[in-house]
Amino acid sequence: IRCIGVSNRDFVEGMSGGTWVDVVLEHGGCVTVMAQDKPTVDIELVTTTVSNMAEVRSYCYEASISDMASDSRCPTQGEAYLDKQSDTQYVCKRTLVDRGWGNGCGLFGKGSLVTCAKFTCSKKMTGKSIQPENLEYRIMLSVHGSQHSGMIVNDTGYETDENRAKVEVTPNSPRAEATLGGFGSLGLDCEPRTGLDFSDLYYLTMNNKHWLVHKEWFHDIPLPWHAGADTGTPHWNNKEALVEFKDAHAKRQTVVVLGSQEGAVHTALAGALEAEMDGAKGKLFSGHLKCRLKMDKLRLKGVSYSLCTAAFTFTKVPAETLHGTVTVEVQYAGTDGPCKIPVQMAVDMQTLTPVGRLITANPVITESTENSKMMLELDPPFGDSYIVIGVGDKKITHHWHRSGSTIGKAFEATVRGAKRMAVLGDTAWDFGSVGGVFNSLGKGIHQIFGAAFKSLFGGMSWFSQILIGTLLVWLGLNTKNGSISLTCLALGGVMIFLSTAVSA
């Protein structure tokens, strides 16, 4: 259960009878995928790494000078000259100064003066180019299975845990398959586009800190620079940016070097996208990844198990997540596992009318040892309800109150669905055939309105939902006002479609 501690969480529900669903994975976010007769899966884009970055340009932001020398000439005696002028490691300046009897010249006039100092770069920052084909995306998957609280967001041991898996995709191999043991396998067909235009970005490294910066900004930095990788004795261009020549006297000129420019660069980098280094690879934390999940090989585990009949206890007080759902960790005293956990939410304890829904599909106890633990997640209705676990006299209950409203949740879900469709863009549509167009249209309606429909009408039977949709269509056909007619027709059509397409 990876997503319960992530604030940016998206719930995606598969269409009834569908074998695939489109998701948008982004750094700092987590996606929970639910479908009829399929286990619930949490998917998170953990890291995006980039390798084989080529150094484009380096800037010196802290330097020192040494070996200063000057040469001067009297008027009419030609130009002052130093051998160091031809050495690229030196920074030199030529000027004219007033000369006369007082400073060793027989004539009054302008004399030539040249001053040089050896330039040494102490600290530099480097910009590297990123090729999209060198990106690698690491995705962690977790099935809502027989897990306890100690396994949440624990990325170790996934090789031997059938509840978890790690997959890596690249532009050259965008397809992967996550093996989930008894739950089958989940196929991923990803489109490795981060949403960032790397043709316009460089990877900047300064003092063990890293950013993504725009090329134009990078090339306009007014500091000494050299092109390409460091060859040991780089040729620094624009050395004068960190060196200041003071007022010249008759035979000498003082040279000083400016202080470190790291603070000024940090100020200019305010708002830039931060990154990290992992050995020789860069780690990015921006952008998104679009994936199509193929769920035809994914299956529920323990459908044929019998119900657990022994007593359950709450190991922890049920807690609310950031998303309005409830996490419950229970301990089973029996030894008759594997068995299914009898769990439901009810409005009252007399009729036990089921409300809400299970995020953890078909929760089971897989071990036959005593005191096995299991964590599950529920989506309670707004208002008061009861969490009921167990059967008969051994069942345990917990009162729950959820604040908020169904309308607010439906609106929030619609906005999130619209954002998801905007990110998917043209990849969500198939114009290759008439059937493809209608299929894409259905998927689009489901992406945007599916979660809201589930919130508003999830407790009704599909037949009642179709009746309401048919009534809206009838009202649309018999209303003389054009805008009201079109609105009723659209709402009725969407409702009829979703009542037959969205899983219960």
Results as ranks from 00 to 15, higher is better:
V6Q: 03
F11P: 01
M15C: 04
G18L: 00
T19H: 04
D22I: 03
V24C: 06
L25Y: 08
E26C: 10
E26F: 07
T32W: 09
I43V: 13
L45N: 12
V46L: 03
T48Y: 08
S51M: 12
N52E: 03
E55L: 12
V56G: 01
V56L: 00
V56C: 02
R57D: 06
S58Q: 12
S58K: 01
S66Q: 01
D67E: 15
G78E: 06
G78D: 09
E79Q: 09
A80V: 10
D83P: 14
K84A: 12
Q85G: 09
V97Q: 08
G104S: 12
G109N: 05
K110R: 10
S112F: 07
T115V: 04
T115C: 08
C116I: 05
C116N: 08
A117L: 00
K118G: 01
P132C: 01
N134W: 11
R138F: 14
M140P: 00
S142N: 14
H144I: 08
G145V: 08
Q147Y: 15
Q147D: 07
I152P: 04
I152T: 12
D161A: 12
E162Q: 12
P171Y: 05
S173K: 04
A178D: 05
G182T: 13
S185C: 04
P192M: 08
L196Q: 01
F198G: 01
L201S: 01
L201V: 15
N208M: 08
H210L: 04
L212D: 09
K215H: 13
I221T: 13
W225M: 07
A227M: 15
A229M: 08
D230G: 13
D230F: 14
T231N: 15
H235P: 01
N238H: 12
L242T: 02
E244Q: 14
A248K: 08
K251W: 01
R252S: 06
Q253G: 05
Q253R: 07
V255D: 01
V255C: 08
G259H: 10
G259N: 09
S260E: 06
E262Q: 08
G263T: 10
A264F: 11
V265M: 12
T267Q: 05
L269V: 05
L269Y: 10
D278V: 00
D278F: 14
K281F: 14
K283T: 15
G287K: 00
L289M: 13
R299Q: 06
G302M: 11
G302D: 12
V303Q: 04
S304F: 15
Y305T: 02
Y305E: 03
S306I: 01
K316W: 12
V317I: 14
V317H: 01
A319I: 02
T321P: 03
L322G: 00
E329N: 10
Y332E: 05
V343H: 02
L352C: 00
V355K: 06
A361F: 09
N362R: 01
S368H: 04
S372P: 13
L376P: 01
E377C: 05
D379T: 02
F382Q: 11
S385G: 12
V391T: 00
G392D: 03
D393S: 11
T397Y: 06
H399T: 02
H401D: 11
S405R: 04
I407H: 05
K409L: 03
K409D: 02
V415S: 03
A418N: 10
R420I: 05
A422L: 15
L424P: 11
D426G: 06
T427Y: 02
T427K: 14
W429M: 10
F431I: 14
F431D: 07
V434N: 09
S440E: 08
K443F: 09
G444D: 12
I445M: 14
I445S: 08
H446R: 10
H446S: 02
Q447L: 04
A451F: 00
F457H: 08
G459S: 09
M460P: 12
W462E: 02
Q465S: 08
L467Q: 03
L467G: 14
L471R: 07
L472T: 15
L475Y: 13
G476H: 09
G476F: 09
L477W: 07
N478Y: 09
I484L: 15
V494D: 12
I496K: 10
A501M: 13
S503T: 13
A504F: 13
